[in-house]
Simulated assay, not measured.
Amino acid sequence: MLNLLLKTKKIRFLPFLLCFSIWYGQAIGQKKTDIFSWGDGQKVLFLGNSITYAGQYVAMTESLLLSSRPKGKPQFINSGLPSETVSGLSEPNHADGKFPRPCLFDRLDNVIDKIKPDVVFVCYGMNDGIYLPFDSARFEAYKDGIIRLHKCLVDQGVKRMIWMTPPVHDDPQLRLDGYNKVLDRYAEWLIGYAKMQSWEIIDLHFRMRRYLEARIEKDAQFKLAADGVHPGELGHWLMAKEIVQQLMPDFPIESTWDDNLRNQPKLRQLYTLVLKRQTMMKDAWLTYTGHKRPGLSKGIPMEDASKAYAAIQDEIKALGF
């Protein structure tokens, strides 16, 4: 369209073209450059599977954002649930036949109603392909789940949603030529659909894949996840780094988590407290909001959890954050 208008030599349309170009870049999902606005009492919810439940990337993100000393102190809430999907699918013999994979929609209403989040981070996909070769019916179930989740969050008044592509999968034998090819398809769709709908999205998958590819070239034995699924500290750092760079693009951030800890003397203490608090609170929230996944630790009552949260918050304040 731009070339057609230029050929008409109607110079008076140039201001319009400039505005159109700016709008179009934003509409297809151009990276945001606005600094995230934090507020006291604001609830920031993370939904996801076992990778989110593990919690390191959530705690790293919160720690770095607190280290920027925002005026407001939001409450980060980790509500990741191991084995969970948005597709509602499960393998016939999941967990040796002990239980089917839980589906987010079995608990979502309770989670949103009881937590009332202002911001929701969403990270699904790893379990939704059921660790099998690509199948169009499973793919449609994942897409339907994501679209349904967006509608549910909008209908329940969530002010901001941030979608994240699933982390990389590293097959023990096939490496990136195994199940990760399914996740490539899922991540490509989510990026494209999010841009088309003007959703806010952070790409974790392809950033982690490129990192893993580069490391494998130098060391064929290198892994981000010992079991191919659940990343260690480095993998969680790669996730947190992408989130922080999206939320606060001008915030000075080091290339490794250890470098951040070395260059900010109090960050290690802050991270220890934040991780301790999130670990305690996630089980409390999961127990309070309810779920169908057996085998998880029972959280302490919310009244006790709130007191423990406040006590750790006092320790964080004593560090100067």
Rank of each mutant, 00 (worst) to 15 (best):
K73N: 05
K73D: 00
F76S: 11
F76V: 10
F76N: 12
I77E: 08
S79K: 12
S79C: 13
S79L: 12
L81Y: 06
P82F: 01
E84S: 11
E84C: 08
E84Y: 00
E84G: 01
T85V: 07
V86P: 02
S87N: 08
L89H: 00
L89K: 02
L89E: 06
S90N: 03
E91G: 10
N93W: 03
A95V: 03
G97L: 04
G97R: 06
F99Y: 12
F99H: 07
P100F: 05
R101F: 00
R101E: 05
D106K: 06
D106A: 06
D106P: 01
R107Q: 09
D109L: 09
N110T: 09
N110S: 14
D118K: 08
V119N: 10
F121H: 12
F121Q: 13
V122C: 14
M126C: 02
M126E: 03
N127H: 15
N127S: 04
D128E: 11
D128W: 05
G129M: 14
G129V: 15
I130L: 15
F134S: 13
D135L: 11
S136Y: 12
F139H: 15
E140C: 09
Y142C: 09
Y142I: 11
K143G: 06
D144E: 12
D144W: 07
D144H: 10
I146T: 11
I147E: 14
H150L: 08
K151I: 12
D155H: 14
D155P: 11
Q156I: 06
Q156T: 09
G157F: 06
V158T: 12
V158H: 10
M161S: 12
I162E: 10
I162G: 06
P166A: 07
P166Q: 02
V168H: 02
D171P: 02
P172L: 02
L174M: 08
L176M: 04
D177G: 02
D177A: 03
D177M: 03
Y179A: 02
K181W: 00
V182Q: 01
V182G: 01
